[in-house]
């Protein structure tokens, strides 16, 4: 069982490296990170935080947009595309459970995403430290950002598999993936913002809104990272985010983990009903 999972993961990793997925996503992350670090950090002026911490704060926002996109692009094709092209039939005929196939693909894709994030953000962080100074301060923040970005990628990989297993055509799966990205990353926030404007002092803003934020994996990721940065420095510009929440920031992390487990389970369930 473990052997089969690792074999599938290994194959996915190999494919990710050979079709330049790893390289391309790392380069995209690095390019955006460098723009944010060197152009976006200019107006911070005399903030007491280290340059690296400030960069990490802007990278967290970058992650919210880019990492789900990269993860969904990797996963939308995983099942629908392979059924479409006929490459999945042999695996389905072999004595491996469908859950093992999903977990194997997840592991392989997760390694692809992890390499891309670690490479992109790692190189950007190293450049910031070398060029802007500030020493090793903020390294913990960068490490936390990389680790949680990988978690964010994992959640959207799993969500992408649910989409991929529920439709028969790659094209439909792609459209679904784009829809999911738009809804989770853009529309959800817009909706919350609208509701907040309509009722800025009521019970919604105080007790419902934070929980709704934590319920979306992308927002949960942002919440946790900003709150963690906030406890040490004033890098985010949001005053006392940690105190304003009705729950500890770790809930954001828990939400992310919950999404990974739930979506993977849902993907396995939907996949089990697929008739190739």
């Amino acid at each position: 069982m473990i052997g089969a999972v690792l074999a599938i993961a290994g194959a996915e990793l190999r494919i990710g490296i050979r079709n330049r997925w790893v390289l391309l996503s790392a380069l995209i992350l690095l390019a955006f990170a460098l723009v944010l670090a060197f152009v976006g950090a200019a107006p911070t002026g005399a903030v007491k935080a280290s340059p690296l911490t400030i960069t990490v704060a802007s990278l967290a926002t970058l992650s919210v947009y880019l990492v789900p996109l990269i993860a969904l692009l990797l996963s939308f094709d995983a099942i629908a595309g392979e059924v479409d092209r006929g490459t999945l039939q042999l695996a389905l005929a072999s004595p491996v459970s469908r859950s093992a196939i999903i977990v194997g693909k997840f592991l392989g894709h997760l390694i692809v995403v992890s390499i891309a994030i670690a490479l992109g953000y790692g190189v950007a962080g190293a450049l910031v430290v070398t060029l802007a100074g500030g020493g090793s301060a903020g390294l913990v923040d960068l490490g936390r950002l990389i680790a949680t970005s990988i978690g964010l990628g994992a959640a959207f990989l799993a969500i992408g598999y649910v989409a991929s297993a529920s439709v028969r055509q790659t094209g439909t799966a792609a459209a679904l993936a784009v829809g999911i990205w738009l809804a989770a990353v853009v529309l959800y926030d817009l909706g919350l913002l609208g509701a907040l404007v309509a009722d800025s002092e009521g019970t919604f803003a105080k007790s419902v809104f934070p929980w709704l934020l934590a319920a979306n994996p992308a927002d949960a990721f942002r919440l946790y990272n900003m709150a963690a940065l906030d406890t040490g420095t004033a890098a985010t510009g949001l005053s006392g985010l940690g105190e304003a929440l009705p729950f500890p920031p770790i809930v954001g992390l828990a939400s992310l983990c919950g999404w990974i487990v739930l979506a993977l389970g849902a993907a396995a369930l939907v996949f089990r009903r697929l008739e190739p």
């Binding site: 052997g3 089969a4 690792l6 074999a7 599938i8 290994g10 194959a11 190999r14 494919i15 050979r18 079709n19 092209r85 006929g86 490459t87 039939q89 042999l90 695996a91 005929a93 072999s94 004595p95 491996v96």
Partner: peptide, 29 residues
């Protein structure tokens, strides 16, 4: 007990023939 060869068999284009057969060998134990 079963081995299957589908009509119009397709493989992952990025993998070599040996990697492909080894992958299925591992899936079959």
């Amino acid at each position: 007990a079963v081995a299957y060869l589908p009509e119009n068999v397709a493989f992952q284009k990025a993998l070599t023939g040996r990697e492909t057969v080894r992958l299925y060998a591992r899936l079959k134990g």
